[in-house]
Design a protein around this nucleic acid. Structure first.
Ligand code: FES
Ligand code: FES
Lengths: 163, 163
DNA sequence: TGATACTGGACCGTTTTAGTACTGTTTATT
DNA sequence: AATAAACAGTACTAAAACGGTCCAGTATCA
C-alpha cells in the first residue's frame, strides 16, 4: 500500500521529540505520556530503536533513553529500516527472486531504480530537519532516457490527482 | 512496510507489456499466460485498470484489453492509485486526523512533504520509460531549510545501507 | 535488598491482502 | 436466434502482516 507502518511513524515522532530535547533522558513511561500512546507500544518501539543503535539506553532506576547520535546523523530512512527492515518497494526487490515472466522481467531493473530513488530521498531527511517544519520541498527526478531526456527536467505539480 | 501491493506490481508489469505491444489487444487469458499468473488474479487487475480508464475493454468474442492512452501519458503513480487508492505514506495523511501528540504533531507537515516528494517522483515515470531499461536515475531532493540549505543539494549514494 | 526500568521473546486479535468463485452482460459468429 | 467467448461486478475464503499486549529476565541505583 506504499505505506510506512505505524511503528515507524511512532518512531519518527518519538525520535524527533528526543532530538528536540537532547539534554535529558526519557523513560518509556515518559514517552508514553508525551506521545499519548499505550506504554507497551512505546516500549516496543524504543527497544527496537535501541537495538538498532539509534538510542542509548540506561537500565535501572534513573534509567531511560536518549539519542545516540547527532540529530543530523539520523535519517528518516535509517529509522524506517530500524523498525521495519530494508526498504523494498516491491517484493522482488526484497527477496531477489525473479517474477514469472517468460523472458525475465522487463520492469524489474526499473523498480530497483525507483526503489533506490525513494530510499535516497528518505536518506536525505534528518531528524534535525524534522524538528522544524520544512518550508519547501522540491523533488526533481532526472530520468535521462535518450528520447525523453529534456522533458523530465521540469517540475510539474499540476498532474497530481487524488481518488 | 513502504511496499507496493502485488496487484500494483502485476499491474505495472502487464501495462508495460501492453505498452510495448500497442497494436493488438489481449484477452485476460492471454495475459495470464504471458505473465504466468492465475487467470482470476490477472482478470481482477485488468478489471480494475479498465475501470480506472487506463485500459479500453472489448467484450464478447474477439474481445480483450488494450491501452487506453499513450504510454507516455500513463505514470507509475497513476497505476498505483488505480490499484490501491491514493498514495499516502502514513495513515494520518490518508485520513486527515491528528495524532495524539499534546500540541499538535510536529512531524505531520513534514510527512506531507515527504509524501508529496515520493508521489511526485512516481508521477514522473511513465510506462513508455518502463518498457526500456532506464540507464540512469538521479534523485535530488532539495530541502532548503535555512540552516542546511546547501548541504542537501549534493547527491550522495554512498550512505546507502542494507540490513 | 528492593524498586525501577530496560531486554527479549512469545502471544493473540484484527486488519489487510491475495486469490477464488460465481452470476450477469455484452458481442461476434454461425 | 442460438451459442460461445470474454468482460463486469461482487461476494467470499484463506493467508499473511500488523498492532498491540504480556510476562519472565536482567541491570542499576538508592
Ligand atoms: S521480478 Fe518483480 S516484477 Fe518482475
Ligand atoms: S499527525 Fe500523524 S504522526 Fe502526528
Amino acid at each position: 500500500m506504499l505505506r510506512v507502518t505505524k511503528l515507524a511513524d511512532y518512531g519518527i515522532v518519538m525520535l524527533t521529540y528526543l532530538a528536540a530535547n537532547r539534554e535529558s533522558t526519557y523513560t518509556a513511561r515518559d514517552m508514553a505520556k508525551i506521545v499519548q500512546l499505550p506504554l507497551p507500544v512505546v516500549s516496543k518501539v524504543l527497544k527496537l530503536l535501541g537495538k538498532a543503535g539509534l538510542l542509548t539506553s540506561q537500565r535501572g532506576t534513573k534509567g531511560g533513553y536518549s539519542l545516540a547520535r547527532d540529530p543530523q546523523e539520523i535519517t528518516v530512512a535509517t529509522v524506517i529500516r530500524a523498525l521495519e527492515g530494508p526498504i523494498a518497494v516491491t517484493e522482488c526487490i526484497a527477496v531477489n527472486r525473479d517474477c514469472n515472466l517468460e523472458l525475465g522481467c522487463p520492469v524489474r531493473t526499473n523498480w530497483h531504480l525507483i526503489n533506490h530513488a525513494i530510499q535516497s530521498a528518505l536518506e536525505k531527511i534528518t531528524l534535525a530537519e524534522m524538528t522544524k517544519p520544512l518550508n519547501q520541498s522540491l523533488v526533481c527526478l532526472n530520468l535521462p532516457v535518450p528520447e525523453t531526456a529534456s522533458k523530465n527536467l521540469d517540475i510539474s505539480y499540476e498532474r497530481q490527482q487524488q481518488h
